[in-house]
Design a protein around this nucleic acid. Structure first.
Lengths: 245, 245
DNA sequence: TCAAAAGTGTTATGCCTACACCCATGC
DNA sequence: GCATGGGTGTAGGCATAACACTTTTGA
């Protein structure tokens, strides 16, 4: 990762990787080696790669996972967004002259968001960072460069998609309970929903299979387990829900 | 436009410029000089420009207009999308060696869609084209490279935005009638709507001012004129309509 | 037996849909 | 006067929102 010849100049991508854990929406972040600033996992695009392939590669490297749900959402092209890029400082300290040239150029970054099953992720830092960790949305502040803006835009897009697309297959384990699914929706939307109405509505979409099993081990009354009906789920992904006109 | 040193390598943008005329949704296209293929107006990004600024510049050049409603919607990054780029052939014929190198590189294109008042546009071809014309959606086929795909994605995005955002201010003259606005919606959505329900719904958004004037000159009963209530319109643009959760 | 969480059903409201009649204008 | 398009109102159905009681379980 110190030979940049294989990559397209001034093009980068940043990934907002969402996971759901302990009833919180979390994002996978890297802590830069020298500046200690937190940053979104990102990468560059090889000369024969599509952006989607590049994003998959980055995702694989940071999470160990394949086939991640991935969605591009915006291009961040402000010519000043790369100014004072802390990564440059990180490279100065690491003494890589070649890298310095690379990092001092202007970067146009395409934002992707990814939805992953928290438990399946094995976080791995990259060459420029020494930590890779999940952070709950509330504990995140002061990200590198314009990464806060990128994160906000990703969240905004995710919320929008929620209103006309099913979500959850990529964020939850194979079997899950209705309260868990509801918590996921509530977390993304940032507001609480009525239990009964939520259930009626989500069931009306026909994207769930109710299982005979109940979730054991928890306290109190054991909730039923559900799984996604993939056929209908994928159909809903393509066609979308309702739409007002 | 034959000195490409001022521009970022392998980055381009393409604009899908929508206008509304004679109850049809139309798109502004260019006809390439040598291949005679039709193409979306596009351009490159200067080294100190944001994509949005570059798109505005392109829009200004093709339409003569400023302050156009502009929205980026997707990045097209397939490494093969530039293969057999007919513009290269156009350049071969025009004998520009420098241009050849430029055009033979891989391009990553960001798609923007624009909404404009048809009557205000003064179409102007660029260096590589000899015609710049409005085409109704139905008459469009066989566009250059992946431009058909870009157009389709723009239309899909526009339809989606229609369900949660007001639209029309940028596409219609200052004063317009309810039937005209309805035709616009019907055209974008590709289906017909009930007159009375459309009117009730659009009025419920409070984004219109009903004027005392009626449209004169037309045959039959003269319809009332409306204008957009900009304050509410802009508020609706920001906040969006409803949303199912 | 009590507290906490989960399962389930009913009612009211409002929005969307479908539909009909009258009015103005040009031919 | 008739065809065409525009203005307006109403009834039914479906989805959403608000809301309460019962059941299970562990402590």
């Amino acid at each position: 990762m110190t030979n940049f010849k294989a990559y397209l100049n001034h093009i980068s991508l940043d990934c907002v990787i969402f996971g759901f854990h302990e009833n919180q929406l979390k994002v996978l972040l890297l802590q830069m080696k020298y500046t200690k600033k937190w940053a979104l996992p990102g990468g560059f695009v090889k000369k024969e790669e599509s952006f989607e392939e590049a994003a998959e590669r980055v995702l694989k490297e940071r999470t160990g996972m394949d086939n991640i749900f991935l969605q591009q959402f915006h291009v961040f092209s402000d010519p000043k967004r790369s100014e004072m890029n802390p990564a440059v400082k990180d490279l100065e300290k690491s003494g890589s002259g070649e890298g310095l040239d690379w990092f001092s150029q202007r970067f146009i970054s395409t934002g992707f968001y990814a939805l992953v099953d928290f438990h399946k992720v094995d976080p791995a830092p990259d060459f420029f960072s020494d930590k890779c960790e999940w952070k709950a949305l509330e504990e995140i502040d002061n990200l590198m460069m314009d990464h806060r803006q990128i994160l906000d835009k990703a969240l905004e897009t995710l919320r929008l998609h929620l209103t006309y697309q099913p979500i959850g297959y990529n964020l939850l384990p194979k079997k899950f309970t209705m309260p868990e699914l509801q918590k996921l929706y509530e977390t993304i939307l940032g507001k609480s929903l009525d239990r009964r109405n939520f259930q009626r509505k989500i069931l009306s979409y026909k994207i769930l299979n109710k299982l005979d099993e109940r979730k054991k081990g928890g306290a109190y009354k054991a909730p039923y387990l559900y799984e996604f009906n993939l056929e209908n789920y994928n159909k809903a992904l393509k066609e979308g829900f309702s739409g007002s006109w």
